[in-house]
């Protein structure tokens, strides 16, 4: 997946990758990634947990807009099934643009 991100990024399109395997992501060299130490098969979290899923999307979009250099692996540190999620403040994303 990291190789695809590199190819797309090299074509001029910014990418953000959700990573479940930090050492592979670091080894491949991915432009922007968000690592969560969660079970494989759950990049956005649990089934039927839309707030959790949207939180990951929100964090990824923040990282997409704010990462200042290639290769940064952001780590929000959410613990699997131990974190209580609140709806992200989507207006924040528009402020980053400003």
């Amino acid at each position: 997946m990291g190789l695809i991100a590199r190819e797309v990024e090299a074509a001029g399109i910014p990418t953000v990758v959700i990573s479940l395997a930090k050492e592979i992501t670091e080894s491949v060299g991915v432009p922007r990634s968000l690592f969560v130490k969660w079970p494989l098969g759950h990049p956005l979290g649990e089934a039927m947990m839309p707030t959790q899923q949207r939180t990951l999307i929100f964090d990824a979009l923040v990282h997409l807009q704010t990462a200042s250099e290639p290769g940064i692996v952001a780590e929000p540190g959410y613990r699997w099934r131990r974190h209580v999620y609140a709806e992200p403040d989507w207006a924040q994303l528009q402020q980053i643009d400003g």
Partner: peptide
């Protein structure tokens, strides 16, 4: 993939493993 995204005018790619 990269060529298709460019042809479609895509600005952001979101990737999941």
């Amino acid at each position: 993939i990269a060529a298709t995204l460019r042809a479609d005018g895509v600005d952001i790619a979101f990737l999941t493993p």
